[in-house]
Write a protein that binds this DNA or RNA. Sequence first.
DNA 1: GCGACAG
DNA 2: ATCTTGTCGC
Length: 193
Amino acid sequence: MDYVLNFLRLLQQLIAKNVVIEHFGLENARSICGVDVAYKGEEGIAVAVRFDGNSYQHNVVKGKVDFPYIPGYLFMREAPIMLKALEGLSCDLILMDGHGIAHPRKSGIATVIGVLLEAHTMGVAKSKLVGDVVEEGGVQYVVVNGEKVGVKAGKYYYSPGNKTDLQDALDLSMRGYPEVLRVADKLSKELKR
DNA sequence: GCGACAG
DNA sequence: ATCTTGTCGC
């Protein structure tokens, strides 16, 4: 499995070179999607929820998940099934569990999916993967090598995935935990029964 | 060698 | 993520 991780690391470095960190502006997101995955042993249940400001809609995908969870390589385990769940949904902004550039190689799952789909994405994680939390002007930033790569608000970490920036992460964090993610999490966990 | 370690 | 009882608090 050593070969695989070496290769995947190169892939992540390539992805990191293609990330686009630029201001999006949440006000430009007419539709926001949230994706989450729950497990029942080897079976993964992915749910993608879309909210367009008026109504909700969602996709459910179940399938075997082979790749193990390895810190730093989450995308290999969850990106495939997440992408399937997102099929057919048009989302101006995609949110998902996990980090974006707040990653050892600036290539968290939100970045991988964002670059792959050329979409606006943002990672929302429940715990830190890398960096130090530094407060500045009333805001808690996730800092890696002196660079601010994310924002911590409450117990959540927000970091740009692709075609979004730190300002977007801060703006999103101030809206509180995204409802689409709360719904996706709740739905995926109750559908595995 | 030791500690850290998204879901 | 999942396993898994009781317990503290609004």
